[in-house]
Design a binder for these strands. Structure first.
Lengths: 213, 213
DNA sequence: ATCAAATTAGGGTAAATACCCTATGTGATT
DNA sequence: AATCACATAGGGTATTTACCCTAATTTGAT
């Protein structure tokens, strides 16, 4: 039987080493190069033939979300499993709509990981039980702000980071040499785009999308 | 030469499996049971003799910070290496003052990990280069709110979570059947305890200490 | 039984945010 | 030339937060 060619994408070297050690001792799975962010992963996909991409969501330079989007466009046959260290409630729906084939939460075991890789390689989907649960809960309870396809401008991201760092509009204005009213405008636009209505919502978004180190 | 007995503490099963696979293939290191939170780890320490504890900071039930504090009190000979997935700026000083023997950031390699374990087992300290750098930067630039030995009450933690979820004082009051002025009192106390002065600071604390799933 | 901590709650005020609105300049695209 | 996205900025207002203060009640521990 042909080996499943797996590309590992994670900015945590220790996880690459760890999962690498796990998968290399598994028959039927061949681990290719590892990439430390989405951009690198896309470069590798241009060169190598990959069956399954195992990718973290939170990464610098290019996050897993954007990377998955591009991969599905350029390499529709390559399967993608997202491996998330947090449990991002609202993002899961977006990923599924995007066509991601699997989603594993942090408390995955070696067995589940191997199982998931084999399943998606065979054309199936694999979502851990916790994800499925959370999905239904999201559907039922929450107003589920999906915020699909939202794009923030550079200035907005810059200001979002400063808000998350605890600076007030006035302080941000001084820092960026603009009026605090302008900062307020950006803040309002951010909240409208992200469908939240206070600073807590903004920060939660910033965290989920890796704007905070 | 005697093997180094290592206890792994992490709530991410995949990391336990991964690092487990790494360390089991390393001569001179014997991996004991793994624990998924600080409380479990302390239970294991009561029973087994452990040379080095390798522990994540963000964990449910009992986080790495509190666990390390207790370990240093009850088992002063056991060495502790903190393994952090984020890069928490302000926490590092606190850990060092607490007597933690090593601190590794997420982008650690297998080599560095093994190196660190051997070094602290021999009575030394090991801090990754990035940590040292960040430490000096913290010392120079930031106001470095250390917040050492701060303890939050159950009610405070409950309210902190709700604030981080984006609820206003009024909404929290309705939820908990108390006056919004009481919520404000708790909010004020939280900010005083944590030495921050707005909701962003509170949320950042909540995240660093794993109060947010 | 007593004491300390936790939780409750309010008075008062200044600052900041949230949320409407309009409007201008700039640079890229068509 | 016209359009559009972006960044800029202000008017106005209601709400919320931040930060002082005091104080009563509850709860748990010695």
């Amino acid at each position: 039987m042909k080996e499943i060619r797996v590309l590992l994408v994670d900015d945590h070297q220790i996880i690459i080493d760890g999962i690498g050690a796990l998968l290399n001792s598994t028959d039927g799975i061949k681990l290719l190069n590892a990439a430390s962010n989405g951009k690198e992963a896309l470069e590798i996909l241009k060169i190598l033939s990959v069956d399954v991409v195992l990718m973290d969501i939170d990464m610098p330079i290019m996050n897993g979300l954007d990377a998955a989007k591009q991969m599905k466009r350029n390499h529709p046959d390559t399967k993608i499993i997202m491996l998330s260290m947090h449990s991002e409630q609202s993002m899961i729906r977006e990923l599924i709509q995007m066509g991601v084939d699997g989603y594993l939460l942090k408390n995955t075991t070696k067995e589940e990981l191997v199982n998931a890789i084999k399943k998606v390689n065979g054309g199936g989907q694999y979502f851990s039980a916790e994800v499925t649960l959370r999905l239904m809960e999201t559907q039922a309870e929450r107003a589920q702000h999906q915020v699909e396809g939202v794009e923030l401008t550079n200035r907005e991201i810059e200001i979002l980071k400063l808000i998350a760092d605890g600076y007030t509009n006035k302080e941000i204005g001084v820092k960026l040499f603009i009026s605090h009213r302008t900062v307020d405008s950006h803040r309002t636009n951010l909240m409208k785009k992200l469908e939240v209505n206070n600073v807590a919502g903004l920060i939660n978004y910033a965290i989920r999308h890796g704007f905070l180190t």
